[in-house]
């Protein structure tokens, strides 16, 4: 499972970075979303992957760490809010400048 998980994170991250490096705002926002998925999954994995283990010490031989889930919850909320804000801002920028290029080139790439 670890290998599959790691490959998934790698694919998500590389897709995210590829899209962030595009020159137009919409792919950049989608790229940020993919990157934040990868980051949240990575944070989740920081507590080690375990199935069927209770998050309580002493009840079973193996126990899960509940803290990364709390961290991930905070990160999801913040990441979601920021993505929404970036999207609105990208729309405003489109309205103001009439094009969706990230840099200041006048015509679209």
């Amino acid at each position: 499972m670890e290998l599959l998980y790691a490959i998934l994170l790698g694919v998500l991250t590389s897709c995210g970075i590829y899209l962030i490096l595009r020159a137009r705002t919409f792919p950049v926002v989608v790229g940020l979303t993919l990157l934040s998925y990868a980051v949240n999954l990575f944070l989740f994995a920081a507590g080690r992957l375990a199935t069927g283990a209770p998050p309580v010490i002493g009840r079973a031989a193996v126990y899960a760490d509940p803290l990364p889930q709390a961290l991930v919850l905070t990160a999801i909320v913040i990441g979601f809010a920021l993505t929404a804000f970036a999207l609105i801002l990208a729309l405003r920028a489109l309205g103001v400048s009439g094009h969706d290029a990230v840099d200041d080139r006048k015509e679209n790439p």
Partner: peptide, 26 residues
């Protein structure tokens, strides 16, 4: 608005890196 877009995007990427390093440290 144009300047704000750059500022927001680069800082969101920065925040993602922040979380990656926190996850690794934890």
């Amino acid at each position: 608005i144009r300047a704000g877009l750059h500022y927001v995007l680069i800082n969101i990427v920065g925040s993602s890196l922040f979380l990656i390093s926190l996850g690794a440290l934890y």
